[in-house]
């Protein structure tokens, strides 16, 4: 049975962080499962948590009055759910819902922010990795915006 610390050592998002600090980070995390349809976070909530998906699929969506919930993206095992915990105003931007059973490690964002403030070396390493996730999501989103599969005008 893997501990949270084991999982941190394996996960790409924590790769640049020295093993000596893994315990520190593990202290902010706990196992958190979700059942089918359960919300991981809701748009507008305070963004104090983020999740590393261990198993399963999560759907990001946003509610548009008159159009209902619009699906934005699906995230799978190994991916991070929740980026708004990093920056003020620390507000959740999208609904995140479990599709089927989802197992995650939930991290206390406020706790980890505090530890990063006190340990800038670790903070910088973590920030680099999160920036990479954000960039790759942004690129993917931009690609989708181009609607490349559409018929030519």
């Amino acid at each position: 049975m893997k501990t949270i610390q084991d999982l941190i050592a394996e996960h790409a998002i924590f790769r640049d962080i020295e093993p000596s600090r893994h315990a520190l980070i593990a202290g902010c995390g706990r196992n958190r499962p979700f059942v089918n349809g359960e919300m991981l976070m809701k748009e507008g909530d305070d963004a104090n948590e983020f999740f590393v998906i261990r198993k399963g699929k999560v759907l990001l969506s946003i509610h548009v009055p008159g159009r209902g919930d619009l699906a934005v993206e699906t995230l799978d095992a190994g991916e991070i759910v929740g980026l708004s915990w990093l920056f003020p105003p620390y507000k959740v931007q999208f609904d995140a819902r479990a599709i089927g059973t989802v197992r995650t490690i939930a991290f206390d964002g406020a706790c980890l922010r505090g530890k990063c403030d006190r340990d800038p070396v670790m903070g910088y390493a973590l920030m680099k990795r999160f920036a990479q996730v954000m960039t790759s999501r942004l690129q993917a989103t931009r690609l989708r915006m181009l609607d490349v599969y559409a018929s030519a005008p």
Binding site: K57, L59, G68, L70, A140, L143, R144, D147, Y149
Partner: peptide, 13 residues
Amino acid sequence: DSAASQWRGNLGV
């Protein structure tokens, strides 16, 4: 690239 929120498959590139 886009789907209704009932879509249970992958949504992304």
